[in-house]
């Protein structure tokens, strides 16, 4: 540590951080341990479960598979940046309304994948939604209420999808 630390600048949830990071530090650890943003979960640590999903430069990534220094200069959105601290994001509201949260471990990753889906297509089909969250494993819900929540959010957010 120390000597070979790298200086990075990264914007997380609209806040700019300038940090010294160990070259081996993973992004998930930077977020959770150094920035205290523990909403991002680590499941497998191997890019297989999607629990650690965040949005980096507009795309979902598994934050366990990215080294912190690789995030230099990037814009990151984590679950903490979805609502504004007072109000939840409409996607989060829809997850609650539809009962899409059970243990909650997959939820932060699911919500960010949902956002990425809706950013790309505000009115996605069931198939597109299922494809879009297929990298996020959920052991509790059977996915149906998550899919429903994303449809619901699409409607609320103005996509207007009704091909249920």
């Amino acid at each position: 540590m120390g000597d070979n630390r790298l200086m990075i600048k990264v914007t997380v949830n609209d806040r700019l951080y300038e940090l010294q990071v160990d070259p081996e530090l993973r992004l998930v650890d930077l977020l959770r341990d150094e920035l205290g943003l523990t909403g991002t979960k680590e499941g497998c640590g191997k890019g297989e479960c999607g629990a650690c999903t965040i949005i980096m430069n507009g795309k979902t990534v598994n934050s366990c598979m990215v080294l912190a220094f690789q995030a230099d200069g990037s814009e990151i959105l984590t679950i903490e940046g979805m609502g504004d601290g007072e109000e939840l994001h409409p996607i989060q509201e829809a997850f609650i309304r539809q009962g899409a949260v059970q243990c909650g471990y997959c939820t932060p990753g699911m919500v960010l994948s949902a956002k990425a889906i809706l950013d790309k297509n505000p009115n996605p089909s069931e198939e597109e939604i299922r494809k879009g969250i297929s990298g996020n494993l959920c052991r509790c819900t059977g996915y149906q209420k998550i899919v429903d929540a994303i449809k619901d959010a699409a409607e609320v957010m103005g996509g207007g999808g009704d091909e249920r």
Partner: peptide
């Protein structure tokens, strides 16, 4: 021992129920 070798259903393996 991994989720890439011990497979559990994804959103594409589960039909609307």
């Amino acid at each position: 021992p991994n989720l890439s070798t011990y497979l559990i259903p994804t959103s594409l393996d589960v039909p609307r129920m």
